[in-house]
Design a binder for these strands. Structure first.
Lengths: 185, 185
DNA sequence: GTCTATAATAGGATAGAC
DNA sequence: GTCTATCCTATTATAGAC
Protein backbone atom coordinates (compact mmCIF):
# COMPACT_ATOMS: atom_id res chain seq x y z
CA UNK A 1 0.00 0.00 0.00
CA UNK A 2 1.21 3.58 -0.52
CA UNK A 3 2.52 4.38 2.91
CA UNK A 4 0.64 7.52 3.87
CA UNK A 5 -2.39 7.39 1.57
CA UNK A 6 -4.25 4.42 2.92
CA UNK A 7 -3.27 1.60 5.19
CA UNK A 8 -3.74 -2.04 4.40
CA UNK A 9 -6.08 -2.31 7.35
CA UNK A 10 -8.18 0.50 5.93
CA UNK A 11 -8.32 -1.16 2.53
CA UNK A 12 -9.46 -4.39 4.15
CA UNK A 13 -12.05 -2.52 6.20
CA UNK A 14 -13.46 -0.97 3.03
CA UNK A 15 -13.48 -4.27 1.20
CA UNK A 16 -15.31 -5.78 4.14
CA UNK A 17 -17.84 -2.97 4.15
CA UNK A 18 -18.49 -3.54 0.45
CA UNK A 19 -18.94 -7.28 0.84
CA UNK A 20 -21.23 -6.68 3.80
CA UNK A 21 -23.49 -4.33 1.92
CA UNK A 22 -23.45 -6.00 -1.51
CA UNK A 23 -22.75 -9.62 -0.69
CA UNK A 24 -19.86 -11.56 -2.22
CA UNK A 25 -21.59 -12.39 -5.50
CA UNK A 26 -23.13 -8.95 -5.66
CA UNK A 27 -19.92 -7.00 -5.11
CA UNK A 28 -18.37 -6.17 -8.48
CA UNK A 29 -14.74 -5.31 -9.03
CA UNK A 30 -15.85 -1.89 -10.16
CA UNK A 31 -17.59 -1.36 -6.83
CA UNK A 32 -14.71 -2.75 -4.82
CA UNK A 33 -12.35 -0.48 -6.74
CA UNK A 34 -14.49 2.58 -6.22
CA UNK A 35 -15.06 2.05 -2.51
CA UNK A 36 -11.43 1.37 -1.72
CA UNK A 37 -10.29 4.22 -3.90
CA UNK A 38 -7.86 1.85 -5.60
CA UNK A 39 -7.92 1.09 -9.30
CA UNK A 40 -8.57 -2.46 -10.38
CA UNK A 41 -4.92 -2.97 -11.17
CA UNK A 42 -3.93 -1.85 -7.70
CA UNK A 43 -6.37 -4.28 -6.20
CA UNK A 44 -4.88 -7.06 -8.30
CA UNK A 45 -1.44 -5.97 -7.25
CA UNK A 46 -2.33 -6.64 -3.62
CA UNK A 47 -4.69 -9.51 -4.25
CA UNK A 48 -3.45 -11.44 -7.31
CA UNK A 49 -6.14 -14.03 -6.68
CA UNK A 50 -8.84 -11.47 -7.35
CA UNK A 51 -12.11 -11.23 -5.51
CA UNK A 52 -11.74 -14.56 -3.74
CA UNK A 53 -8.38 -13.52 -2.32
CA UNK A 54 -9.84 -10.21 -1.23
CA UNK A 55 -12.54 -12.08 0.65
CA UNK A 56 -10.11 -14.44 2.37
CA UNK A 57 -7.90 -11.48 3.30
CA UNK A 58 -10.98 -9.79 4.74
CA UNK A 59 -11.67 -12.92 6.78
CA UNK A 60 -8.14 -12.80 8.14
CA UNK A 61 -8.56 -9.17 9.01
CA UNK A 62 -11.90 -9.93 10.65
CA UNK A 63 -10.26 -12.55 12.80
CA UNK A 64 -7.82 -9.97 14.12
CA UNK A 65 -10.53 -7.41 14.74
CA UNK A 66 -12.66 -9.95 16.55
CA UNK A 67 -9.77 -11.29 18.55
CA UNK A 68 -9.16 -7.79 19.87
CA UNK A 69 -12.81 -7.17 20.63
CA UNK A 70 -13.15 -10.57 22.23
CA UNK A 71 -10.04 -10.27 24.37
CA UNK A 72 -11.14 -6.82 25.49
CA UNK A 73 -14.43 -8.30 26.60
CA UNK A 74 -12.81 -11.28 28.26
CA UNK A 75 -10.45 -9.00 30.19
CA UNK A 76 -13.33 -7.56 32.16
CA UNK A 77 -13.58 -8.79 35.72
CA UNK A 78 -17.00 -10.24 36.23
CA UNK A 79 -18.83 -12.50 33.78
CA UNK A 80 -21.59 -9.89 33.66
CA UNK A 81 -19.11 -7.24 32.61
CA UNK A 82 -17.52 -9.54 30.02
CA UNK A 83 -20.90 -10.26 28.51
CA UNK A 84 -21.99 -6.63 28.54
CA UNK A 85 -18.77 -5.53 26.87
CA UNK A 86 -19.02 -8.23 24.24
CA UNK A 87 -22.59 -7.34 23.38
CA UNK A 88 -21.71 -3.65 23.18
CA UNK A 89 -18.94 -4.48 20.77
CA UNK A 90 -21.23 -6.59 18.62
CA UNK A 91 -23.93 -3.94 18.66
CA UNK A 92 -21.39 -1.46 17.34
CA UNK A 93 -19.92 -3.86 14.80
CA UNK A 94 -23.35 -4.61 13.36
CA UNK A 95 -24.44 -0.96 13.62
CA UNK A 96 -27.42 -1.86 15.75
CA UNK A 97 -28.37 -4.61 13.32
CA UNK A 98 -28.28 -2.46 10.19
CA UNK A 99 -25.00 -3.90 8.89
CA UNK A 100 -24.94 -7.48 7.72
CA UNK A 101 -22.54 -10.14 8.93
CA UNK A 102 -19.63 -10.70 6.57
CA UNK A 103 -19.63 -14.38 7.47
CA UNK A 104 -23.23 -14.77 6.43
CA UNK A 105 -22.52 -12.97 3.16
CA UNK A 106 -19.69 -15.33 2.31
CA UNK A 107 -21.65 -18.39 3.42
CA UNK A 108 -24.40 -17.38 1.02
CA UNK A 109 -22.07 -17.03 -1.96
CA UNK A 110 -21.71 -19.41 -4.85
CA UNK A 111 -18.01 -19.75 -3.99
CA UNK A 112 -18.74 -20.60 -0.36
CA UNK A 113 -16.61 -23.74 -0.55
CA UNK A 114 -13.49 -21.60 -0.95
CA UNK A 115 -14.10 -19.92 2.38
CA UNK A 116 -15.14 -22.98 4.32
CA UNK A 117 -12.10 -23.33 6.56
CA UNK A 118 -11.64 -19.70 7.62
CA UNK A 119 -15.38 -19.38 8.14
CA UNK A 120 -15.47 -22.41 10.35
CA UNK A 121 -12.60 -20.92 12.35
CA UNK A 122 -14.39 -17.61 12.63
CA UNK A 123 -17.61 -19.17 13.85
CA UNK A 124 -15.74 -21.33 16.32
CA UNK A 125 -14.03 -18.25 17.70
CA UNK A 126 -17.34 -16.44 17.80
CA UNK A 127 -19.17 -19.19 19.68
CA UNK A 128 -16.05 -19.87 21.72
CA UNK A 129 -16.02 -16.38 23.16
CA UNK A 130 -19.53 -16.77 24.51
CA UNK A 131 -18.56 -20.20 25.74
CA UNK A 132 -15.66 -18.82 27.75
CA UNK A 133 -17.91 -16.27 29.39
CA UNK A 134 -20.35 -19.01 30.31
CA UNK A 135 -17.54 -21.07 31.77
CA UNK A 136 -16.20 -18.09 33.70
CA UNK A 137 -19.65 -17.72 35.21
CA UNK A 138 -19.53 -21.30 36.39
CA UNK A 139 -22.22 -22.64 34.11
CA UNK A 140 -22.26 -26.36 33.48
CA UNK A 141 -20.24 -27.10 30.36
CA UNK A 142 -23.24 -28.47 28.47
CA UNK A 143 -25.33 -25.44 29.39
CA UNK A 144 -22.56 -23.03 28.45
CA UNK A 145 -22.16 -24.73 25.09
CA UNK A 146 -25.85 -24.67 24.30
CA UNK A 147 -26.21 -21.03 25.28
CA UNK A 148 -23.12 -19.94 23.38
CA UNK A 149 -24.36 -21.58 20.22
CA UNK A 150 -27.81 -20.16 20.76
CA UNK A 151 -26.45 -16.65 21.22
CA UNK A 152 -24.67 -16.69 17.87
CA UNK A 153 -27.68 -18.31 16.20
CA UNK A 154 -29.92 -15.55 17.49
CA UNK A 155 -27.59 -12.75 16.48
CA UNK A 156 -27.28 -14.09 12.95
CA UNK A 157 -31.02 -14.63 12.71
CA UNK A 158 -31.82 -11.18 14.02
CA UNK A 159 -29.61 -9.68 11.32
CA UNK A 160 -31.64 -11.49 8.66
CA UNK A 161 -34.91 -10.19 10.06
CA UNK A 162 -33.63 -6.64 10.32
CA UNK A 163 -32.49 -6.77 6.73
CA UNK A 164 -35.88 -8.08 5.66
CA UNK A 165 -38.12 -5.84 7.74
CA UNK A 166 -35.98 -2.76 8.21
CA UNK A 167 -36.86 -2.89 11.90
CA UNK A 168 -33.71 -2.71 13.97
CA UNK A 169 -35.79 -3.36 17.07
CA UNK A 170 -35.48 -7.09 16.51
CA UNK A 171 -31.73 -6.85 16.88
CA UNK A 172 -31.93 -4.74 20.03
CA UNK A 173 -34.45 -7.13 21.59
CA UNK A 174 -32.26 -10.08 20.69
CA UNK A 175 -29.16 -8.63 22.31
CA UNK A 176 -31.22 -7.64 25.31
CA UNK A 177 -32.61 -11.15 25.65
CA UNK A 178 -29.10 -12.60 25.50
CA UNK A 179 -27.90 -10.11 28.07
CA UNK A 180 -30.61 -11.06 30.54
CA UNK A 181 -30.70 -14.82 30.05
CA UNK A 182 -27.23 -15.96 29.09
CA UNK A 183 -25.81 -16.11 32.60
CA UNK A 184 -28.94 -17.24 34.41
CA UNK A 185 -28.33 -20.15 36.75
CA UNK B 1 -46.66 -23.67 -19.54
CA UNK B 2 -46.96 -26.67 -21.85
CA UNK B 3 -49.88 -28.49 -20.32
CA UNK B 4 -48.56 -31.97 -19.60
CA UNK B 5 -44.81 -31.46 -19.60
CA UNK B 6 -44.33 -29.39 -16.52
CA UNK B 7 -46.70 -27.38 -14.40
CA UNK B 8 -46.22 -23.77 -13.50
CA UNK B 9 -45.98 -24.78 -9.87
CA UNK B 10 -43.18 -27.19 -10.72
CA UNK B 11 -41.31 -24.50 -12.64
CA UNK B 12 -41.63 -22.16 -9.67
CA UNK B 13 -40.48 -24.89 -7.31
CA UNK B 14 -37.38 -25.46 -9.42
CA UNK B 15 -36.64 -21.76 -9.67
CA UNK B 16 -36.96 -21.55 -5.91
CA UNK B 17 -34.61 -24.48 -5.44
CA UNK B 18 -32.05 -22.77 -7.66
CA UNK B 19 -32.28 -19.46 -5.83
CA UNK B 20 -32.01 -21.28 -2.53
CA UNK B 21 -28.85 -23.10 -3.49
CA UNK B 22 -27.12 -20.39 -5.52
CA UNK B 23 -28.54 -17.20 -4.05
CA UNK B 24 -30.23 -14.53 -6.13
CA UNK B 25 -27.06 -12.83 -7.33
CA UNK B 26 -25.36 -16.16 -7.82
CA UNK B 27 -28.09 -17.82 -9.88
CA UNK B 28 -27.39 -17.27 -13.56
CA UNK B 29 -29.98 -17.52 -16.31
CA UNK B 30 -28.07 -20.46 -17.69
CA UNK B 31 -28.46 -22.27 -14.38
CA UNK B 32 -32.11 -21.32 -14.03
CA UNK B 33 -32.72 -22.54 -17.56
CA UNK B 34 -30.94 -25.81 -17.00
CA UNK B 35 -32.61 -26.62 -13.71
CA UNK B 36 -36.11 -25.81 -14.92
CA UNK B 37 -35.54 -27.63 -18.19
CA UNK B 38 -36.80 -24.57 -20.03
CA UNK B 39 -34.75 -22.62 -22.55
CA UNK B 40 -33.91 -19.04 -21.78
CA UNK B 41 -36.49 -17.86 -24.27
CA UNK B 42 -39.17 -19.89 -22.57
CA UNK B 43 -38.24 -18.40 -19.25
CA UNK B 44 -38.50 -14.92 -20.72
CA UNK B 45 -41.82 -15.86 -22.26
CA UNK B 46 -43.23 -16.55 -18.79
CA UNK B 47 -41.21 -13.96 -16.94
CA UNK B 48 -40.65 -11.00 -19.28
CA UNK B 49 -39.10 -9.10 -16.42
CA UNK B 50 -36.26 -11.61 -16.23
CA UNK B 51 -34.64 -12.83 -13.06
CA UNK B 52 -36.31 -10.27 -10.84
CA UNK B 53 -39.74 -11.32 -12.03
CA UNK B 54 -38.85 -14.96 -11.51
CA UNK B 55 -37.92 -14.16 -7.93
CA UNK B 56 -41.12 -12.25 -7.22
CA UNK B 57 -43.15 -15.08 -8.76
CA UNK B 58 -41.27 -17.51 -6.54
CA UNK B 59 -42.18 -15.36 -3.53
CA UNK B 60 -45.83 -15.54 -4.54
CA UNK B 61 -45.58 -19.28 -4.89
CA UNK B 62 -43.86 -19.50 -1.53
CA UNK B 63 -46.69 -17.62 0.10
CA UNK B 64 -49.16 -20.20 -1.18
CA UNK B 65 -47.02 -23.11 -0.08
CA UNK B 66 -46.55 -21.61 3.36
CA UNK B 67 -50.20 -20.73 3.71
CA UNK B 68 -51.07 -24.38 3.15
CA UNK B 69 -48.42 -25.64 5.54
CA UNK B 70 -49.41 -23.08 8.12
CA UNK B 71 -53.13 -23.74 7.89
CA UNK B 72 -52.49 -27.46 8.15
CA UNK B 73 -50.58 -26.83 11.35
CA UNK B 74 -53.17 -24.44 12.73
CA UNK B 75 -55.95 -26.96 12.06
CA UNK B 76 -54.54 -29.32 14.67
CA UNK B 77 -56.48 -29.43 17.89
CA UNK B 78 -54.09 -28.62 20.69
CA UNK B 79 -51.47 -25.88 20.66
CA UNK B 80 -48.86 -28.58 21.23
CA UNK B 81 -50.00 -30.42 18.12
CA UNK B 82 -50.11 -27.21 16.08
CA UNK B 83 -46.56 -26.39 17.09
CA UNK B 84 -45.30 -29.90 16.48
CA UNK B 85 -46.87 -29.99 13.04
CA UNK B 86 -45.48 -26.59 12.12
CA UNK B 87 -41.98 -27.53 13.19
CA UNK B 88 -42.18 -30.80 11.27
CA UNK B 89 -43.20 -28.88 8.18
CA UNK B 90 -40.33 -26.44 8.60
CA UNK B 91 -37.85 -29.22 9.21
CA UNK B 92 -38.92 -30.79 5.94
CA UNK B 93 -38.95 -27.51 4.04
CA UNK B 94 -35.41 -26.71 5.15
CA UNK B 95 -34.26 -30.32 4.70
CA UNK B 96 -33.12 -30.56 8.28
CA UNK B 97 -31.27 -27.27 7.95
CA UNK B 98 -29.36 -28.19 4.80
CA UNK B 99 -31.48 -26.04 2.47
CA UNK B 100 -31.26 -22.30 2.79
CA UNK B 101 -34.20 -19.96 3.26
CA UNK B 102 -35.30 -18.30 0.04
CA UNK B 103 -36.21 -15.17 1.98
CA UNK B 104 -32.72 -14.86 3.35
CA UNK B 105 -31.26 -15.34 -0.12
CA UNK B 106 -33.35 -12.52 -1.53
CA UNK B 107 -32.71 -10.27 1.45
CA UNK B 108 -28.99 -10.71 0.85
CA UNK B 109 -29.18 -9.78 -2.82
CA UNK B 110 -28.10 -6.53 -4.39
CA UNK B 111 -31.65 -6.08 -5.72
CA UNK B 112 -33.20 -6.59 -2.27
CA UNK B 113 -35.17 -3.34 -2.54
CA UNK B 114 -37.26 -4.86 -5.34
CA UNK B 115 -38.47 -7.63 -3.06
CA UNK B 116 -39.05 -5.55 0.04
CA UNK B 117 -42.84 -5.66 0.14
CA UNK B 118 -43.40 -9.35 -0.57
CA UNK B 119 -40.61 -10.27 1.82
CA UNK B 120 -42.11 -8.20 4.57
CA UNK B 121 -45.43 -9.95 3.95
CA UNK B 122 -43.76 -13.33 4.02
CA UNK B 123 -41.96 -12.67 7.30
CA UNK B 124 -45.14 -11.28 8.85
CA UNK B 125 -46.98 -14.44 7.87
CA UNK B 126 -44.11 -16.53 9.18
CA UNK B 127 -43.99 -14.83 12.58
CA UNK B 128 -47.78 -14.55 12.59
CA UNK B 129 -48.21 -18.31 12.45
CA UNK B 130 -46.13 -18.80 15.57
CA UNK B 131 -48.01 -15.91 17.13
CA UNK B 132 -51.36 -17.57 16.54
CA UNK B 133 -50.17 -20.76 18.15
CA UNK B 134 -48.99 -18.80 21.15
CA UNK B 135 -52.35 -17.06 21.40
CA UNK B 136 -54.21 -20.36 21.07
CA UNK B 137 -52.18 -21.62 24.00
CA UNK B 138 -53.33 -18.69 26.07
CA UNK B 139 -49.98 -16.95 26.33
CA UNK B 140 -50.02 -13.27 27.17
CA UNK B 141 -49.99 -11.26 23.93
CA UNK B 142 -46.62 -9.68 24.67
CA UNK B 143 -45.11 -13.05 25.49
CA UNK B 144 -46.57 -14.66 22.40
CA UNK B 145 -45.18 -11.87 20.22
CA UNK B 146 -41.72 -12.06 21.69
CA UNK B 147 -41.57 -15.83 21.38
CA UNK B 148 -42.91 -15.85 17.83
CA UNK B 149 -40.29 -13.36 16.72
CA UNK B 150 -37.60 -15.26 18.57
CA UNK B 151 -38.60 -18.55 16.94
CA UNK B 152 -38.19 -17.15 13.43
CA UNK B 153 -34.97 -15.41 14.42
CA UNK B 154 -33.54 -18.68 15.71
CA UNK B 155 -34.58 -20.67 12.68
CA UNK B 156 -32.98 -18.17 10.31
CA UNK B 157 -29.85 -18.00 12.42
CA UNK B 158 -29.55 -21.76 12.67
CA UNK B 159 -29.67 -21.99 8.87
CA UNK B 160 -26.72 -19.62 8.65
CA UNK B 161 -24.67 -21.67 11.09
CA UNK B 162 -25.49 -24.93 9.35
CA UNK B 163 -24.40 -23.43 6.05
CA UNK B 164 -21.17 -22.24 7.61
CA UNK B 165 -20.26 -25.29 9.65
CA UNK B 166 -21.95 -28.09 7.75
CA UNK B 167 -23.30 -29.33 11.06
CA UNK B 168 -27.05 -29.85 10.77
CA UNK B 169 -27.16 -30.55 14.49
CA UNK B 170 -27.50 -26.84 15.18
CA UNK B 171 -30.76 -26.78 13.27
CA UNK B 172 -32.14 -29.84 15.03
CA UNK B 173 -31.22 -28.44 18.43
CA UNK B 174 -32.83 -25.14 17.55
CA UNK B 175 -36.12 -26.70 16.51
CA UNK B 176 -36.02 -28.89 19.58
CA UNK B 177 -35.45 -25.90 21.81
CA UNK B 178 -38.40 -24.09 20.25
CA UNK B 179 -40.57 -27.16 20.65
CA UNK B 180 -39.84 -27.45 24.34
CA UNK B 181 -39.89 -23.79 25.33
CA UNK B 182 -42.32 -21.98 23.06
CA UNK B 183 -45.48 -22.89 24.94
CA UNK B 184 -44.07 -22.84 28.48
CA UNK B 185 -46.19 -20.85 30.88
C1' DG C 1 -44.37 -22.11 -26.40
C1' DT C 2 -40.06 -23.60 -27.44
C1' DC C 3 -35.80 -23.63 -29.79
C1' DT C 4 -31.16 -21.85 -31.92
C1' DA C 5 -28.60 -18.08 -32.66
C1' DT C 6 -27.03 -13.78 -31.49
C1' DA C 7 -26.86 -9.18 -29.80
C1' DA C 8 -25.40 -6.16 -25.99
C1' DT C 9 -23.38 -5.50 -21.83
C1' DA C 10 -21.23 -6.25 -17.54
C1' DG C 11 -17.85 -8.69 -15.08
C1' DG C 12 -13.29 -10.45 -13.93
C1' DA C 13 -8.77 -10.12 -15.09
C1' DT C 14 -4.37 -8.52 -17.53
C1' DA C 15 -0.83 -5.52 -20.24
C1' DG C 16 2.10 -2.06 -20.31
C1' DA C 17 3.15 2.85 -19.61
C1' DC C 18 4.46 5.88 -15.97
C1' DG D 1 2.15 1.00 -6.95
C1' DT D 2 -0.97 3.09 -9.69
C1' DC D 3 -3.20 4.31 -13.88
C1' DT D 4 -5.50 3.80 -18.65
C1' DA D 5 -6.72 0.86 -21.89
C1' DT D 6 -8.03 -3.50 -23.21
C1' DC D 7 -9.12 -8.51 -23.46
C1' DC D 8 -12.02 -12.35 -22.71
C1' DT D 9 -15.62 -14.62 -20.85
C1' DA D 10 -20.08 -15.01 -18.78
C1' DT D 11 -24.40 -12.97 -18.39
C1' DT D 12 -28.63 -10.87 -19.44
C1' DA D 13 -31.70 -10.31 -22.83
C1' DT D 14 -33.78 -10.46 -27.60
C1' DA D 15 -34.80 -11.97 -32.58
C1' DG D 16 -36.85 -14.89 -35.47
C1' DA D 17 -37.71 -19.63 -37.19
C1' DC D 18 -40.61 -23.58 -36.17
Amino acid sequence: MPAPLITKAEVLARLMATFRSDGYDGASLAELSQRTGLGKSSLYHYFPGGKAEMATAVLGHLEQVLREAFSTALSCKTPEAKLARLLEGLDAFYAGGKSACILERLVASVDRARFKKPMLRAFEGYVGTFLEIGRAAGLRESVAKARAESAVVRIEGALVLVAATGDAGVFARTLSEIRSSFLAK
